[in-house]
Amino acid sequence: MIDTADIPGGGQLQLKQRGDDFAIEYGETQLMVSWASRSEEALATLACQRMGMEHGRMLIGGLGMGFTLSAALAALPGSASVVVAELVPKVVEWARGPLAHLFGGTLDDPRVAIEICDVHDIISGPPEQFDAILLDVDNGPDGLISAANDRLYCDWGLRAAHTALRPGGVLAIWSSYPEHGFADRLEDAGFMVEEVSLRTGERGRGARHVIWLAIRES
């Protein structure tokens, strides 16, 4: 155990290390690990591909170990901007401390702004402010880490994300498991939906994760 971090509203995250490997855990659940990042990276690369050539402003919910942020910055042009909303302040401290080698200086990229806040509060702001919203704040489309996160995935929460996106914008949601009916919920909120399933490891190995890519058509 390296450190712990209290979650606003209750609960605690744990940062653990074994050899060269790191893990952030919530109770008995591993939220993210340093040795498997393929699906977190895909969350960003797939979203950027569907944004088309006009890359503009992106919101990432959840800093984690920085894999999604790093992949987004690699895919986005210099004119883009990325807002990262992180609920737990100490996660940002870890990113600049024991996990700094994983971030590789991405937090100092001039395109990046870190906001210590609930990503829902940003989504509920002015309409049509983002070209992409990437959510990796739970292990799937439910409020595991914070019960308040349920509002991100409920009908009115998804409609709020639809409103926060510009036409053609993409809402991308990461999950460690499939969720029957969630694609239908996204469609009911006005999105055109694609569901991508992929292994966390190379050559078809590792756990199977799911990414929903929801496009606002108008």
Rank of each mutant, 00 (worst) to 15 (best):
S124D: 08
D184T: 15
M58F: 13
E194S: 11
I60H: 00
P178S: 12
W156Q: 15
M1D: 14
C48Q: 05
A23P: 07
D121F: 05
D155A: 13
F22L: 15
P110C: 02
N139C: 13
D131G: 14
I211V: 06
Y153T: 10
R199L: 10
I122E: 00
L135E: 02
Q129W: 02
N149G: 08
G169M: 05
E93I: 09
A183I: 05
D188K: 15
A5G: 06
A95V: 01
A132L: 06
I116W: 00
Q30F: 12
Y26Q: 02
C117P: 00
L99A: 08
T163P: 06
H101P: 08
E93C: 11
P141E: 10
E93W: 09
L43C: 03
A72P: 06
G168A: 11
P89S: 07
S146A: 09
P77G: 03
D142W: 15
D6H: 03
W94P: 12
E195H: 05
E179V: 15
G181D: 14
S37R: 09
R166S: 11
G19D: 01
R185P: 09
I7G: 01
T4A: 06
I2P: 09
E115D: 12
S70Y: 01
I133K: 07
C117A: 14
T4S: 13
G97K: 12
P77N: 04
L76H: 05
